[in-house]
């Protein structure tokens, strides 16, 4: 192995197998390993030569969903322990956010935005990035007024205040899209009071820890996600030993 003495090879192989949680597997054949273990062996083979940079190209695409989540945590943990600069290519946006310090979103061969997961999710520079990273509502509207970075937009039959990434490029009357994440929309029974918008629930899907809603609001369809705190949620007041009641959403 790269002109490394045999004794050192044995030592390094032992170290790297321990690092990926496969100590004692030296004598196993590939067919005796699970999918996750085979992936760890591939990782061990890459890091045993002590590279300065690691490139992962869709490393988890062949694994089932549960194992993918487990392996991405292991890869992230290992990368931090080894402190190796790592380039990780994936089409899975959640995976990208889970393993990265910085993300570059590419479209047609060009980087269209680069930044932290929070930057990309909360401050997308384009509709492409907004739609590519997570779920989003893109609500059609027209600029009513611009004051610095603050923009007032006529949309959904009312005016809505928002931030603009490039407010100086906008003028009253310009067609725009409001970017609203599904979890940033609150809903309550009834409707229309206190300046809130009125909508109708057209679909409700219970997904365990969250409930997804599709709403019809002033001719637009809005995706809404509300998280259910569940029966084990902490009581709102510290001195209260038991929650008396909990309203279901």
């Amino acid at each position: 192995m790269r002109k490394v003495p045999a004794a050192e090879v044995r030592q390094r192989v032992g170290e790297v197998l321990a690092l990926v949680g496969l100590a004692g597997y030296e004598g196993q054949f590939s067919g005796q390993l699970s999918g996750g273990e085979q992936q760890r062996v591939a990782l061990a083979r890459a890091i045993v030569i002590r590279p300065r940079v690691l490139l992962f190209d869709e490393p988890l695409s062949n694994l089932d969903a549960k194992l993918r989540v487990q392996m991405r945590h292991e890869i992230r943990d290992l990368q931090r322990r080894l402190a190796i600069t790592t380039v990780y290519v994936t089409h899975d946006q959640e995976e990208a956010m889970a393993v990265s310090d910085r993300i570059a979103v590419m479209n047609e061969g060009s980087v269209v935005q680069e930044g932290s997961a929070e930057d990309l999710y909360h401050r997308p520079a384009s509709q492409f990035v907004a739609q590519f990273v997570g779920r989003v509502n893109l609500v059609a509207g027209r600029v009513a007024a611009v004051a610095g970075d603050a923009v007032t937009v006529a949309a959904l039959g009312t005016t809505i205040g928002a931030r603009a990434v490039r407010a100086r490029d906008l003028a009253p009357g310009d067609p725009v899209r409001l970017v609203v994440r599904p979890e940033s929309i609150a809903i309550a029974a009834g409707g229309g009071a206190d300046g809130s918008l009125q909508a109708t629930v057209i679909a409700r899907t219970f997904l365990g820890e969250k409930i997804e809603y599709l709403l019809r609001c002033a001719g637009e369809t809005l995706q809404v996600v509300r998280y259910d705190a569940g029966p084990g949620a902490p009581c709102p007041k510290a001195r209260t030993s038991r929650c008396a009641s909990r309203k279901m959403p």
Partner: peptide, 30 residues
């Protein structure tokens, strides 16, 4: 909130971003 019911909708403060309208945008290419 059951299907068919009327609801009041509010956007969280500082959670709305404005982007210019574009005619068409491409597809992903990692």
């Amino acid at each position: 909130m059951p299907e068919g019911s009327n609801v009041a909708v509010r956007f969280a403060e500082d959670a709305v971003t404005v982007l210019p309208e574009v005619a068409a945008e491409g597809t992903s290419d990692a």
